[in-house]
Amino acid sequence: MSNRDEHIVEAAGKCRVVIRNGRVVEVGTPQIQDCPLARRFACPVEEMTPEAIQRNIEARIRSFGMCTPEREVLAGPDFVPFGASELLSSAVRRGDLDAAVIASDGAGTLVAENPALIQGIGGRMSGLVKTSPISAVIARIEENGGVVLDPEAAVIDQAGGVALARTLGHRRIAVTTAVAAEAAAIRERFPETVIVGVHTTGLSREDAALMAGAADLLTACASRYIREEAAKAALLQAGTSIPVFAMTRAGKAIILGKIGETDQPFIVHSARLPVPGSQSPEPLC
C-alpha cells in the first residue's frame, strides 16, 4: 500500500470511519443509538458508540482484510436474507441479471458477474465513501471475473460502471448507489437498469423522494423519510426491522425470485406498507 492509502466508510449508524494503511485513524459520531442488524454482526455493536464501532471495523480488518491487501472477495452464504448483495447475487445466479455494478474497498466501482464475488464484496461492505487502489485486491477481483472501472484511481462512479457493463456486452444490469442524484441520473441515462438504493440513513426528505422515484429496490436502513416514501408507492416489502422495498415490478421480481430459491418459510399477505417490525433502528432519521 502507498502513502496515499485511505479508505472512508460509513459504518453502523452512518458513522464516518477513516482507515489508513490498515489502521482505524478516525471515528465519527453515530447518527442513531441502536440498530438490530448491528447487534447481529460477527463482532456485535451492542451500543452505538465510537469505541464499539471502532472495535467492529478492526474486527473486519482482522477477519477478512477489509481495506488491506489481504481483502477476501468471495463469499457463499447469505449474511442477511434480503441484503442488496444477497438479492443481486441470487438474481445473477438465477440468470435474471447478467451482472451487478458494485463498489469495493481497494478497487472502487466494478462490474461483477460472479455471484460469489458480488456477495463477497457487497455482503461485507459498509457504505463506501472513498477508497484508494490496492493492487492485490484488484488482482483478486479480476481473477474472479470482475472488471474494475478505474484500477489506477479506484474511483466510485456507479453511472460509469453501468456504461462499462454495457460495453462488456451486459444488458440486464443492476447497480447499487447511495446517492439520490446519481440514482436519478442513471435512471435517465440507462432506463432499463435495475437500481438498488443503499445506505439511506440520514437522507433528506428531498433526496429520499428522489431516490424512491428512481430506484427499483430500496433499503430503508434507519431512514424515516424512505419509509414515508415507500408508503406511497412500494409494491412489496421484505423484512420488517430494516425493510427492503420493491418500488417497481422489476424489484418485486428480484425479491420473489430470492424467496423462491430458499426453503426458509415465509408468510405472504397483503398489507398497507410499511409494516413495522418489533425492532427497528432508533431513532429513525
Results as ranks from 00 to 15, higher is better:
Pro36Thr: 07
Ala233Lys: 15
Thr176Phe: 00
Gly169Phe: 11
Met1Pro: 14
Leu168Trp: 10
Glu152Asn: 03
Arg124Gln: 08
Pro44Asp: 09
Phe41Ser: 05
Gly239Glu: 03
Tyr225Leu: 11
Glu72Thr: 08
Gly13Cys: 12
Asn144Asp: 02
Arg71Leu: 14
Gln31Leu: 15
Gly28Lys: 08
Ser280Met: 15
Pro283Ala: 05
Ala234Leu: 01
Leu217Asp: 03
Val155Arg: 15
Thr176Pro: 04
Val137Ile: 07
Phe82Gly: 00
Ile102His: 04
Ile255Ser: 00
Pro151Asn: 02
Gln237Thr: 03
Thr29Met: 12
Arg166Ala: 10
Gly145Gln: 06
Ile242Thr: 09
Arg140Cys: 02
Arg71Trp: 13
Thr262Ala: 11
Val268Lys: 14
Ile173Glu: 02
Ala250Ser: 10
Gln158Val: 13
Asn3Glu: 14
Ala154Cys: 09
Arg249Val: 13
Thr200Leu: 01
His7Ile: 15
Arg93Phe: 06
Ala180Gln: 06
Thr200Asn: 07
Ala136Gly: 04
Val17Trp: 10
Thr219Ser: 12
Ala178Asp: 14
Ala163Glu: 11
Asp263Asn: 14
Ile8Cys: 03
Arg60Gln: 15
Gly65Pro: 07
Glu51Tyr: 09
Ala212Glu: 00
Ala178Thr: 10
Ala107His: 05
Gln54Leu: 08
Ile267Met: 09
Ser223Met: 07
Gln54Cys: 11
Ser85Gly: 10
Ser135Pro: 10
Tyr225Glu: 14
Ala99Thr: 04
Leu110Val: 04
Ala253Asp: 13
Gly146Glu: 00
Gly251Pro: 02
Ala208His: 00
Pro115Tyr: 03
Thr68Gly: 01
Ala116Val: 09
Gly28Tyr: 11
Gln279Met: 12
Ala163Phe: 14
Gln158His: 13
Pro44Ile: 03
Gly251Ala: 05
Arg224Pro: 04
Ala174Leu: 07
Gly76Trp: 05
Thr49Trp: 12
Val80Pro: 07
Gly277Arg: 02
Gly251Gln: 02
Val129Asp: 10
Arg93Ile: 01
Glu206Ser: 10
Asn21Leu: 13
Ile226Cys: 00
Gly197Pro: 03
Gly277Val: 01
Ala250Met: 04
Asp207Ala: 11
Gly160Ile: 06
Ala183Glu: 11
Leu128Lys: 00
Ile138Leu: 08
Arg23Ser: 14
Ala220Ser: 02
Val175Arg: 01
Asp5Ser: 07
Arg55Lys: 12
